[in-house]
Design a protein around this nucleic acid. Sequence first.
DNA 1: CGCTGTTATGTCACAACATGATGTAATTGG
DNA 2: CCAATTACATCATGTTGTGACATAACAGCG
Lengths: 142, 142
Amino acid sequence: MPSPHPAPTPQDYQALSEFRYQLRRFLRFSEDAAQAEGLTGLQYQLLLHIKGNPERDWALVGELAERLQIQQHGTVALVTRCEAAGLVQRVRSETDRRQVQVRLTARGEACLKRLAALHRAQLQSLSGVFQVAHISAFNDQL
Amino acid sequence: MPSPHPAPTPQDYQALSEFRYQLRRFLRFSEDAAQAEGLTGLQYQLLLHIKGNPERDWALVGELAERLQIQQHGTVALVTRCEAAGLVQRVRSETDRRQVQVRLTARGEACLKRLAALHRAQLQSLSGVFQVAHISAFNDQL
DNA sequence: CGCTGTTATGTCACAACATGATGTAATTGG
DNA sequence: CCAATTACATCATGTTGTGACATAACAGCG
């Protein structure tokens, strides 16, 4: 058994290509929106994951690394850039002095608020786009 | 009117954060799968967009730039790296000698075939994940 | 035909990003 | 109290994406 998967059909290639295209278009929108606020796409995502935690208004470096799916030391560098840009603030944990709590500054919060509103609107207008690729091309075959 | 959008709710932030998290997880899968074949995620996408064209078995640099949503000269560099890796081949167009047709090599085609099969399986198993974020959290409010 | 503007690709320098290798301080477990 | 682990950090390195710019080929027009 050389391959555990059946060979992709021409329709598979087309659907995968279209899916990645739509994905890139959304990420491009996100990147451009972030840059209009003076930040990068990654910096926006970092702020988003701090604010997106339902339990606390801060996040640990390691938690952010998991949400961003990058290495911890990549996150360290990103937090440093965000801190230099005045978007977040490092606070040493009282209970465990190894930990660093990353908190939003007022400026970070304001940027995030505007960007999140834009993204919410964009995703609402895109409802269905991401499904199209895999539902119509893949699930139809099931 | 300072803002054309209503302020995001805590649920909006959570849903946006979760959506980007799932997106990153998928992209991480894609990146890892590509690296297991010895290429990068971008290189896989380039191959995919060549093969994903229903009309031809090649693509112009400019067309690839649009599908990848990056600048043309960024695409030039990517094509050069793919060519160096033996995945694609540049062919000057006969009809318009400004144009360069990017074609898959046998090796590129083989890598792509395996990666596309993996991605198809992964997306099938993910059916619903991308919807979850914006359908459940956004569309419910409409 | 020759001039101009546009299109398609390419080059170069630069900053952001992601990783591997490695380090340091704080906490935990025996 | 020592060893192992955890959390964060630094450094050097390679990839990536962009802006500024260059080159070559086509297209339209007088």
